[in-house]
């Protein structure tokens, strides 16, 4: 019985041949992300910027100009109106009125009153969020801390399970993924809020998952093919795991796609970012995590560790020898 395959059997892509090009591309992506964040900036959500967000459902198709006029009459600052989903759904965003949190409460009531006055009683407030300036800066601080802690713990784990070269490689690739994801938020203008931090951490988790599996294969092959050039060995490892890399990316992307399409407006930014993360994580496994090992003097370390154990065999049949048949 033959099943369709995402990747043909016995592939032999010379991934390492493109490592310089990929490295340059990755550096460009990182620089571009930094540039985008610096120039275009990130569309901070209310969680991190503070302020008021209202989700409003109007009886007829929303008249944004009328709504803006009603809002301006309340003296609100930094008014942003945005249509989403149905033409009757509008997201109203207003900057935090002042340092005094209690004034924001008054303002929410005033805004609701003004909108109801202009658009009639049938207007519906589906969601109202207010984040005070103190809380928003704490949330941002916590988000950054969470990312750093996760990165540190995972790097430590990989170091513990593998060798330092792997953990350094994993860390470099994940930093790349984070940079590329933040750049993605900047270029798409998707709002960066608490759930975006969750998306970033999930991407970190997914991406490392991918790297650990490829690293596991590299480590195994290092023991099996002692005379093979590192470049060839990395290529071999990547090709051997290519089927699983693509398959997992496909099923994860499939599930995420279901969320993007059917999961509703609230989750869209979150899921789109994770979909991007699957792509960037898969890329960085192949073109960053593996090739950087070449520069870390991996072979000598591995040989030192394994010195004296079953010396100098390099046989393609090595596997069946290494593992006695049942």
């Amino acid at each position: 019985m033959r099943h369709p395959r995402l990747v043909p059997d016995n592939t032999n892509f010379p991934f390492m041949r493109f490592r310089m090009a990929a490295l340059v591309a990755s550096i460009i992506v990182i620089l571009a992300s930094i540039g985008l964040v610096a120039i275009k900036g990130i569309n901070w959500g209310v969680d991190f910027e503070g302020g008021i967000v209202l989700e409003v459902k109007t009886p007829q198709a929303a008249d944004l100009a009328a709504m803006r006029a009603a809002l301006e009459s309340t003296g609100a600052n930094g008014i942003r109106l945005q249509q989403f989903g149905d033409p009757t759904d509008v997201l109203v965003r207003i900057a935090a009125p002042s340092e005094v949190a209690s004034e924001a409460q008054v303002q929410i009531d005033r805004i609701k009153g003004a909108l109801t006055g202009r658009l009639g009683q049938d207007i519906q407030f589906d969601r109202a969020d207010f984040v005070g300036p103190q809380v928003s800066s704490e949330l941002l601080h916590d988000g950054i801390l969470a990312t750093v802690v996760a990165l540190a713990l995972i790097t430590a784990y990989v170091w513990f399970r593998f060798e330092w070269q792997y953990s350094l490689g994993a860390m470099i690739s994940v930093v790349h993924d984070i940079a590329a994801t933040v750049g993605f938020f900047a270029i798409t203008g998707i709002e960066f809020d608490l759930s975006s931090v969750a998306a970033v951490l999930t991407i970190v988790g997914y991406s490392l998952n991918d790297k650990v599996i490829v690293y596991d294969r590299i480590r195994e092959n290092l023991r099996l093919y002692k005379a093979m050039s590192l470049e060839e060995l990395l290529n071999r490892s990547l090709n051997e795991t290519l089927g699983r890399t693509m398959m997992t990316a496909a099923t994860t992307a499939l599930a995420l796609l279901a969320l993007v399409i059917f999961g509703g407006e609230v989750l869209r930014g979150f899921t789109v970012a994770m979909l991007w993360g699957v792509f960037i994580g898969t890329y960085s496994t192949t073109f960053i995590a593996a090739p950087v090992l070449i520069y870390f003097n991996l072979r000598s370390a591995a040989q030192k560790a394994k010195a004296g154990e079953g010396a100098g065999k390099d046989k393609t049949k090595g596997k069946s020898l290494a593992h006695p048949a049942q």
């Binding site: 916590d142 969470a146 784990y157 608490l194 931090v197 969750a198 951490l201 490392l208 998952n209």
Partner: peptide
């Protein structure tokens, strides 16, 4: 590795 990322998220998330 995945669990580590999730647990950190649990610790810091609200």
């Amino acid at each position: 590795t995945h669990l580590i990322a999730s647990l950190v998220l649990f610790e810091f998330g609200t």
